[in-house]
Amino acid sequence: MKKVLSFVLNGHEVSAEIESHKMLLQVLREEFQLTGTKEGCGQGECGACTVLVDGIPVDSCIYPSFEVDGKSVTTIEGLLGEGNVLHPIQAAFVAHGGVQCGFCTPGMIMSSKALLDETPMPTVQEVRNALAGNLCRCTGYVQIVDSVLSAAEKIQAEIKQ
Protein backbone atom coordinates (compact mmCIF):
# COMPACT_ATOMS: atom_id res chain seq x y z
CA MET A 1 0.00 0.00 0.00
CA LYS A 2 1.05 3.59 -0.68
CA LYS A 3 0.35 6.88 1.00
CA VAL A 4 1.26 10.51 0.34
CA LEU A 5 3.30 11.67 3.31
CA SER A 6 3.66 15.37 4.06
CA PHE A 7 6.26 16.49 6.54
CA VAL A 8 8.85 19.15 7.21
CA LEU A 9 12.30 18.07 6.07
CA ASN A 10 15.20 20.27 7.17
CA GLY A 11 12.88 23.24 7.43
CA HIS A 12 11.09 22.75 4.11
CA GLU A 13 7.61 21.32 3.63
CA VAL A 14 7.81 18.24 1.44
CA SER A 15 5.49 15.48 0.34
CA ALA A 16 6.01 12.21 -1.47
CA GLU A 17 4.11 9.03 -2.19
CA ILE A 18 5.76 6.27 -0.17
CA GLU A 19 5.22 2.51 0.14
CA SER A 20 4.15 1.21 3.55
CA HIS A 21 7.13 -1.09 4.13
CA LYS A 22 9.76 1.66 3.67
CA MET A 23 11.65 2.91 6.67
CA LEU A 24 12.42 6.61 7.12
CA LEU A 25 16.09 5.97 6.25
CA GLN A 26 15.18 4.67 2.78
CA VAL A 27 12.84 7.61 2.18
CA LEU A 28 15.57 10.10 3.09
CA ARG A 29 18.29 8.45 1.00
CA GLU A 30 16.30 7.19 -2.00
CA GLU A 31 13.36 9.60 -2.32
CA PHE A 32 15.10 12.80 -1.24
CA GLN A 33 18.72 11.90 -2.09
CA LEU A 34 19.86 12.95 1.39
CA THR A 35 22.68 10.44 1.64
CA GLY A 36 24.36 12.05 4.64
CA THR A 37 22.35 9.72 6.86
CA LYS A 38 24.08 6.30 6.84
CA GLU A 39 22.83 2.76 7.22
CA GLY A 40 25.09 0.79 9.56
CA CYS A 41 23.54 -2.25 11.19
CA GLY A 42 19.99 -1.64 9.97
CA GLN A 43 18.69 -2.94 13.31
CA GLY A 44 18.68 0.00 15.70
CA GLU A 45 21.96 -0.87 17.42
CA CYS A 46 24.67 1.35 15.91
CA GLY A 47 23.03 4.77 15.54
CA ALA A 48 24.66 5.64 12.17
CA CYS A 49 21.16 6.42 10.81
CA THR A 50 20.20 8.78 13.65
CA VAL A 51 18.00 11.71 12.61
CA LEU A 52 15.77 14.02 14.66
CA VAL A 53 12.00 13.61 14.50
CA ASP A 54 10.34 16.61 16.16
CA GLY A 55 13.74 17.30 17.73
CA ILE A 56 14.16 13.81 19.24
CA PRO A 57 16.88 11.41 18.01
CA VAL A 58 15.61 8.16 16.51
CA ASP A 59 17.14 5.33 14.49
CA SER A 60 15.70 6.05 11.03
CA CYS A 61 16.49 2.48 9.84
CA ILE A 62 13.68 1.09 12.04
CA TYR A 63 11.37 4.12 11.98
CA PRO A 64 8.32 3.32 9.79
CA SER A 65 8.01 6.06 7.18
CA PHE A 66 4.22 6.36 7.63
CA GLU A 67 4.81 7.63 11.19
CA VAL A 68 6.64 10.70 9.91
CA ASP A 69 3.48 12.19 8.32
CA GLY A 70 2.86 15.65 9.81
CA LYS A 71 6.12 15.68 11.75
CA SER A 72 9.40 17.53 11.36
CA VAL A 73 12.60 15.69 10.38
CA THR A 74 16.13 17.05 10.67
CA THR A 75 19.07 15.25 9.05
CA ILE A 76 22.77 16.09 9.06
CA GLU A 77 22.18 18.14 5.86
CA GLY A 78 19.81 20.35 7.86
CA LEU A 79 22.55 21.51 10.22
CA LEU A 80 24.59 23.32 7.59
CA GLY A 81 24.27 27.10 7.94
CA GLU A 82 23.93 29.74 5.22
CA GLY A 83 26.82 29.86 2.77
CA ASN A 84 27.73 26.24 3.62
CA VAL A 85 29.05 27.23 7.04
CA LEU A 86 29.43 24.19 9.30
CA HIS A 87 27.26 23.99 12.42
CA PRO A 88 29.39 24.52 15.57
CA ILE A 89 29.04 20.81 16.41
CA GLN A 90 30.30 19.82 12.95
CA ALA A 91 33.17 22.32 13.22
CA ALA A 92 34.11 20.97 16.66
CA PHE A 93 34.22 17.36 15.31
CA VAL A 94 36.65 18.53 12.61
CA ALA A 95 38.79 20.56 15.01
CA HIS A 96 39.08 17.85 17.70
CA GLY A 97 39.56 14.77 15.54
CA GLY A 98 36.06 13.48 16.27
CA VAL A 99 35.94 12.24 12.65
CA GLN A 100 38.11 9.38 11.45
CA CYS A 101 36.47 7.14 8.86
CA GLY A 102 33.37 9.34 9.16
CA PHE A 103 30.66 6.71 8.84
CA CYS A 104 29.30 7.18 12.37
CA THR A 105 29.72 10.96 12.28
CA PRO A 106 26.31 12.11 10.96
CA GLY A 107 24.57 10.01 13.62
CA MET A 108 26.98 11.14 16.34
CA ILE A 109 26.36 14.76 15.44
CA MET A 110 22.57 14.41 15.38
CA SER A 111 22.60 12.76 18.84
CA SER A 112 24.90 15.55 20.03
CA LYS A 113 22.55 18.19 18.60
CA ALA A 114 19.59 16.74 20.51
CA LEU A 115 21.67 16.61 23.70
CA LEU A 116 22.83 20.23 23.46
CA ASP A 117 19.29 21.42 22.65
CA GLU A 118 18.07 19.83 25.91
CA THR A 119 21.23 20.21 28.04
CA PRO A 120 23.32 23.15 26.76
CA MET A 121 26.30 22.51 29.10
CA PRO A 122 26.45 18.73 29.63
CA THR A 123 28.90 16.85 31.85
CA VAL A 124 31.21 14.20 30.38
CA GLN A 125 28.85 11.52 31.71
CA GLU A 126 25.83 13.20 30.13
CA VAL A 127 27.64 13.28 26.77
CA ARG A 128 28.55 9.61 27.10
CA ASN A 129 24.97 8.68 28.02
CA ALA A 130 23.54 10.68 25.11
CA LEU A 131 25.92 8.95 22.67
CA ALA A 132 25.45 5.44 24.10
CA GLY A 133 23.42 4.49 21.01
CA ASN A 134 26.08 5.63 18.54
CA LEU A 135 28.90 3.19 17.89
CA CYS A 136 32.31 4.24 16.53
CA ARG A 137 34.97 1.76 15.43
CA CYS A 138 37.77 4.32 14.99
CA THR A 139 38.12 7.04 17.58
CA GLY A 140 37.76 5.26 20.90
CA TYR A 141 35.18 7.98 21.66
CA VAL A 142 37.58 10.29 23.56
CA GLN A 143 37.86 12.81 20.73
CA ILE A 144 34.12 12.62 20.11
CA VAL A 145 33.32 13.50 23.72
CA ASP A 146 35.89 16.33 23.54
CA SER A 147 34.24 17.59 20.34
CA VAL A 148 30.78 17.75 21.92
CA LEU A 149 32.04 19.49 25.09
CA SER A 150 33.93 22.02 22.98
CA ALA A 151 30.87 22.61 20.76
CA ALA A 152 28.77 23.23 23.88
CA GLU A 153 31.18 25.95 25.03
CA LYS A 154 31.31 27.54 21.55
CA ILE A 155 27.52 27.63 21.26
CA GLN A 156 27.12 29.17 24.71
CA ALA A 157 29.85 31.75 23.98
CA GLU A 158 28.08 32.70 20.73
CA ILE A 159 24.75 33.09 22.54
CA LYS A 160 26.35 35.40 25.11
CA GLN A 161 27.88 37.69 22.45
Binding site: G44, P57, V58
Partner: peptide
Protein backbone atom coordinates in the same frame (compact mmCIF):
# COMPACT_ATOMS: atom_id res chain seq x y z
CA UNK B 1 17.44 -0.12 28.73
CA UNK B 2 19.10 -0.27 25.28
CA UNK B 3 20.12 3.24 24.15
CA UNK B 4 18.60 6.72 23.85
CA UNK B 5 17.33 6.30 20.28
CA UNK B 6 15.52 3.10 21.26
CA UNK B 7 14.11 4.62 24.48
CA UNK B 8 12.81 7.58 22.47
CA UNK B 9 10.35 5.36 20.58
Amino acid sequence: LANPQVRNV
